[in-house]
Design a protein around this nucleic acid. Structure first.
Length: 173
DNA sequence: TTAGTGATATCC
DNA sequence: GATATCACTAAA
């Protein structure tokens, strides 16, 4: 099976669309020691713009959320609860704060475990997704895959309408 | 169910 | 400067 590396164009669309299509793709990471690890994405969530009260950027641009306004294909990595790194990929046009949270991969259930398994830390924040010579990239295998949708989790602070949005995408196995 | 953990945002 | 919050996990 020929794998194709996802390019910038893939991420230059509305984030629910990108989040849905990322399910079943391969997250590829070159570890600091040079070892390459590839994991299939099983779960994503979309965080979509200033109008989405669940999105970090819904209150506007700050030092932390600035990276969400970057061009598509940029990584947004931040620390949660002082322990866990969260891995996001910026989508949509530049100046539109949208991102897809990679919630889980095959063999790494949960966003904190995922970044631990791939040695993803704040060092990768603001990095641009690259090809297979860089620290992190994505591949597709061309196989169609089915997914289920569900409301997002852990966003109790968002408005009821935004909490109800089916912007969580889970690989159907 | 709850403790742990530290950056960020929001208040003095 | 201080403190309240947080897109989580592991241990019990």
């Amino acid at each position: 099976m020929q794998h194709r590396i996802l390019t910038r164009e893939f991420f230059a669309r509305e984030c629910p669309e990108v989040a849905a299509e990322l399910v079943g793709k391969w997250l590829c990471r070159r570890l600091p020691d040079g070892e390459i690890r590839r994991l299939r994405i099983t779960e994503t969530e979309a965080y979509c713009g200033e109008t989405d009260t669940a999105c970090h950027a819904h209150k506007g641009r700050t030092k932390r959320t600035e990276v969400l306004y970057a061009p598509p294909g940029v990584l947004y990595v931040y620390l949660c609860y002082g322990i866990h790194w969260m891995l996001n990929i910026v989508t949509g046009e530049e100046d539109r704060p949208q991102a897809v949270l990679i919630r889980a991969c095959e063999g790494a259930d949960g966003p904190g475990k995922l970044t631990k398994a791939l040695s993803v830390t704040g060092e990768l924040n603001r990095c641009t997704l690259s090809d297979d010579t860089g620290p992190l990239w994505l591949e597709e295998d061309g196989l169609p895959c089915a997914y289920d949708t569900a409301p997002r989790v852990g966003i109790g602070y968002a408005s009821p309408e935004d909490q109800a949005k089916p912007w969580r995408f889970i690989l159907r196995t």
